[in-house]
Design a protein around this nucleic acid. Structure first.
Length: 434
RNA sequence: GGGCUCGUAGUGAAGUCGGCCUAUCACGCCUCCCUGUCACGGAGGAGAUCGCCGGUUCGAAUCCGGUCGGGCCCGCCA
C-alpha cells in the first residue's frame, strides 16, 4: 500500500511505504537525509544504515524510489513527521545530471526565461515553479465553482473554424482537407449562439492569435475564459458579474493560498467588491493632468496609461482592479452594442497594470446586427456566419459577456513579470517547442 | 513591421574603450571527512576551443563586419 507524503503525519508509529522522486540528498556522515517528492509534497527520510545510503551512489535527483520506513513524529522535520529505519528500492535509476536545479529558486529574469522554458520538463519539478501552476489550477477551479453557482453551463466550441470570423486579431491559417480554415481567435460567435440554448454559458479553452507581438504580455496561444449570458437588463449587469467573479476568485485565492503566494513574493491584494469605473476620456484627461502627456488622440489606452490608472485606483480608490468604460464606437466590433455619444457599451477590466478582460453588451436585434455587420464590411453570406445569424433570426434575448485572459490573471495574481511564466509551455513568435 | 539591447563551464554571474586571462566566482557534479540537516558544513578535483564565420592586429572573450539565437519597448492585439 502506497502512502502519500501529506498523510504520513496521521500514521505515526506505523510502517509506511512511499513512492516518489529523489528530490534532495544531504549526507552527514553517519546520518543521511533524503527528500522524496510525490504529489502530496516532500517527505524527509532519515537513513543510518550505510548499505541503504550506498544504493543511491551514482544516482541523481529524479531517481524514482520506493521507501519503506516507520513514521515518526519529529518537530525538526518539515511537516512534523519523517521516516526512520528506511529501506530503499530503486524503481527507476537516473544517472543523468539534471540540466537545471530543482531545489533552489530558478532565475525568472527576462533574459533567462529562455533557459527556463528550454528545460521546462525538469524545471517544473522545482517546487517554486510547481506552485505557480497549482495556483493557476486553483484559479480555474474557483472560476468554475463561481460560475456553476450562478447557473452557468460549461461548453466546448470548435477551434478549427471557417475563415476570419470575428475580425480584429490576426489569425493562423491552415489547410483543412483542401479548404482554407483558421484557428479560432475566440469562441465569440459560438458562445452567443449558445445563449439561445442555455441562457448562461462559459468556456475555458485556447484562443490563437497570430499578431507579430513580442512583449511580456503576448502569447500566440492563450487560455481564455469566455462567458456569455442572456436576459440582462443593461450593460451594468455584465460589468457586475465580472466584478463579482474577479472579487470572489482573487479574495479566495489570497485567503486559501496565502503561504504559497507569500513564498512567490506576490504583492498584497488591495481589492474592493465595487471596482472603480472611469471612462476612457476621463482617463486620458486624468493622465494628462498628472503627467502632461496628451493621449486624447488615442482611441484606446496606451500600455503606459493602463499602468497609471491601476496605480491611481489602488492609491485613491483602494482597489487594484478598475473598469475603463466608454470605448469609442470606432473601435467596437460588429457584435457590440452601440452606446451613447459615439461610444460602445463596452469596458475593459484592468488589473495591476494590464487589460485582463473586455466586457461588452452585444447587439441582439437581428436587423441591427445585420446592419452593423454590413457597416463593418463583413460578408454576411459567408458560410461561417450562417448559423450565427440564424440564432438571432430565431430569437436571442439581450445579452452580454466577456473574454478573459487566464494567463494574464495568473501572472498578475502571483505578481510575475511575464505572462509566459504563467504558462506551462508558452507559444510565442519565436517558440514552438517544447 | 520599427527601435534598443544581450550571447562566457550543466545553471546563474564577473571580466568587454586590445596584452596583466594559463578566463574569475557561486550553485550543481566527482572523491574524501562529518549523527539533526532542511539553500547543511569542511577539504580536494573535473568541467569553457568566451554563439558561429570572417576581418583588423605582433596579440582578440574584449575592436569591426556578417550571421544565428535570445530579451525589452513601440505598433498591432487580449
Amino acid at each position: 500500500m502506497r502512502t502519500i507524503s501529506k498523510d504520513i503525519i496521521g500514521l505515526i508509529g506505523q510502517e509506511v511505504t512511499i513512492e516518489g522522486w529523489l528530490h534532495k540528498k544531504r549526507l552527514l556522515g553517519g546520518l543521511t537525509f533524503i527528500n522524496v517528492r510525490d504529489r502530496g509534497g516532500l517527505t524527509q527520510v532519515v537513513i543510518k544504515d550505510k548499505d541503504e545510503v550506498e544504493k543511491l551512489r551514482g544516482l541523481q535527483i529524479g531517481t524514482v524510489l520506493r521507501v519503506t520506513g516507520v513514521a515518526k513524529e519529529e518537530p525538526r522535520a518539515p511537516g512534523g513527521a519523517e521516516l526512520h529505519d528506511a529501506k530503499l528500492e530503486v524503481m527507476v535509476p537516473v544517472t543523468e545530471e539534471p540540466p537545471i536545479e530543482i531545489d533552489k529558486p530558478l532565475s525568472h529574469k527576462s533574459e533567462n526565461l529562455d533557459t527556463l522554458f528550454e528545460h521546462r520538463s525538469i524545471g517544473l519539478r522545482n517546487l517554486q515553479e510547481t506552485k505557480i501552476f497549482m495556483i493557476r489550477s486553483e484559479i480555474l477551479r474557483y472560476i468554475r465553482e463561481f460560475l456553476y453557482s450562478q447557473d452557468f453551463t460549461e461548453i466546448n466550441t470548435p477551434k478549427i473554424v471557417a475563415g476570419d470570423a470575428e475580425g480584429g486579431a490576426a489569425v493562423f491559417k491552415l489547410d483543412y482537407f483542401g479548404k482554407e480554415a483558421t484557428l479560432a481567435q475566440s469562441p465569440q460567435l459560438y458562445k452567443q449562439i449558445m445563449v439561445g440554448v442555455f441562457e448562461r454559458v462559459f468556456e475555458i479553452g485556447p484562443a490563437f492569435r497570430a499578431e507579430l507581438s513580442a512583449t511580456t504580455r503576448h502569447l500566440s496561444e492563450v487560455t481564455m475564459l469566455d462567458v456569455e449570458f442572456g436576459f440582462i437588463k443593461d450593460h451594468d449587469d455584465v460589468l457586475k458579474l465580472l466584478q463579482e467573479l474577479v472579487f470572489n476568485v482573487l479574495t479566495r485565492l489570497y485567503s486559501e493560498h496565502a503561504d504559497e503566494l507569500k513564498s512567490l513574493n506576490a504583492p498584497e491584494l488591495t481589492l474592493k467588491p465595487e471596482f472603480p469605473r472611469y471612462t476612457m476620456a476621463q482617463i486620458h484627461e486624468m493622465y494628462q493632468k498628472a503627467t502632461g502627456k496628451d493621449m486624447s488622440g488615442e482611441l484606446d489606452l496606451t500600455p503606459e496609461e493602463e499602468k497609471w490608472i491601476c496605480e491611481y485606483a489602488k492609491k485613491n480608490d483602494g482597489c487594484e482592479a478598475v473598469f475603463a468604460t466608454g470605448l469609442p464606437e470606432s473601435k467596437m466590433k460588429f457584435y457590440h452594442m452601440k452606446g451613447e455619444n459615439g461610444t460602445a457599451r463596452s469596458g475593459d477590466l484592468l488589473f495591476r497594470g494590464i487589460e485582463i478582460s473586455t466586457v461588452p453588451q452585444r447587439e441582439h436585434r437581428h436587423e441591427d446586427l445585420i446592419q452593423q455587420m454590413k457597416d463593418a464590411g463583413v460578408d454576411v453570406t459567408a458560410p461561417g456566419f450562417a448559423s450565427y445569424i440564424a440564432a438571432f433570426k430565431h430569437g436571442l434575448p439581450p445579452h452580454g459577456g466577456f473574454g478573459f485572459g487566464i494567463d494574464r490573471l495568473t501572472e498578475k495574481a502571483i505578481g510575475l513579470g511575464n505572462v509566459k511564466e504563467a504558462v506551462l509551455f508558452p507559444r510565442d513568435i519565436n517558440r514552438l517547442a517544447p
